[in-house]
């Protein structure tokens, strides 16, 4: 290594002493120390970066290890069994998986169009000075902890639905052939539909903010060209902006889906925690995360605990795949925007 590179700092380090004794040996010592510190710091940061990978692997390994007893007992049937009986120690994941998928589906059904429309409003319609405040307000929705949504859902939103939307759905759609059973049964207030709607509010900000960012990244030339041939604002967004930003929008939607699938507290409050698959969306059900949150501390026996951890493993695998796809898509659009 070129020793002159470290010269001035080594001199500063020596400063006063250098005046008294400009001993070459002492200088070399200081340089060595700096070099050593440098290498140590580099390795330390590297170790921390690798630590992030270790963390993820540790999560996966510990979940797999914890779920072995349950998987050994029930095999692949665990995924497809509808029974969940802690007393006889027979466990199946199907009701929880079903609830997780259905509530997330309801959430996306509402959050995607609303989120995209807000992004349309923020990029094309909103006056410039209002964009930032409204954007921040929508993002604040994402900052509210999920337990707040839970308590609000249980005490405010569920009773409201019980008195308004649910009786309406039962009266109108409940008697229609084929789709009737989907809206059948008494209005409990809590249930799959309520949980799905709360999830929709919670993931809305993710869809909005990512869509807004990718909408804004569309080259102005493209939009100006479309406006130039007389397109309306909606046509520009629908036929120019949206196709161009497609990959990013889908990435944002997947990210929101990942959130919805794993969301725990808000759902636990309003899902009703019933281990069965009902045709009706108004009926109580359960999700993977709600089951774990409700039952883990009370689980007695290794098999019960292990079955809950196996549920956690299923949840982790599903969200991992969804989030990986989301990140891959967002990475692609990031590269294109450069």
């Amino acid at each position: 290594m070129d020793s002159s590179r470290g010269q001035s700092v080594a001199d500063i380090a020596l400063q006063e002493r250098a005046l008294i004794a400009p001993a070459a040996g002492r200088r070399a010592k200081v340089l060595d120390r700096l070099r050593l510190g440098d290498a140590a710091f580099r390795q330390l940061t590297r170790a921390a970066a690798i630590g992030v990978l270790v963390l993820l692997s540790a999560v996966i390994i510990s979940l797999i290890r914890g779920s072995i007893p349950a998987l050994k007992t029930f095999g692949f049937g665990f995924l497809f069994s509808e029974r969940w009986n802690p007393v006889t120690e027979i466990f199946g994941a199907l009701p929880a998986v079903y609830g997780t998928v259905i509530t997330s589906f309801i959430a996306m059904l509402f959050a995607v169009p609303i989120g995209l429309m807000i992004a349309f409003f923020l990029t094309e319609l909103c006056p410039q000075w209002l964009r930032r405040p409204i954007g921040i307000a929508i993002e604040l929705l994402a900052g509210i902890p999920s337990i707040i949504y839970g308590i609000w859902g249980l005490f405010v939103f569920a009773p409201f639905l019980q008195e308004t939307l649910q009786p309406f759905l039962i009266d109108t759609l409940g008697n229609v052939p084929f789709i009737g059973p989907v809206f059948g049964g008494p209005p409990y207030g809590i249930g799959m539909l309520t949980a799905g709607l709360i999830l929709a509010i919670m993931v809305l900000p993710f869809i909005t903010s990512i869509s807004r960012d990718v909408f804004e990244a569309v080259p102005p030339v493209l939009k100006e060209a479309a406006y130039g041939i007389g397109c309306t604002k909606w046509e520009v967004t629908r036929n120019v902006v949206l196709p161009y930003a497609r990959v990013g929008v889908i990435g944002g939607i997947m990210l929101a889906l990942g959130r919805a699938l794993g969301e725990t507290m808000a759902v636990t409050f309003v899902i009703g925690n019933a281990h069965r698959i009902s045709a009706s969306l108004l009926a109580p059900g359960t999700t993977i995360s709600a089951t774990i949150a409700n039952e883990f501390t009370e689980a007695v026996g290794d098999l019960y605990t292990s079955a809950l951890i196996a549920l956690g493993l299923i949840l982790f695998v599903i969200t991992f795949i969804v989030l990986a796809i989301a990140r891959y898509l967002l990475l692609r659009i990031e590269r294109r925007i450069g």
Binding site: V59, G258, G262, E263, L315, T319, L323
Partner: peptide, 8 residues
């Protein structure tokens, strides 16, 4: 990890 379910 940033969006992984916290219950896990």
């Amino acid at each position: 990890l940033l969006s992984a379910p916290s219950i896990v």
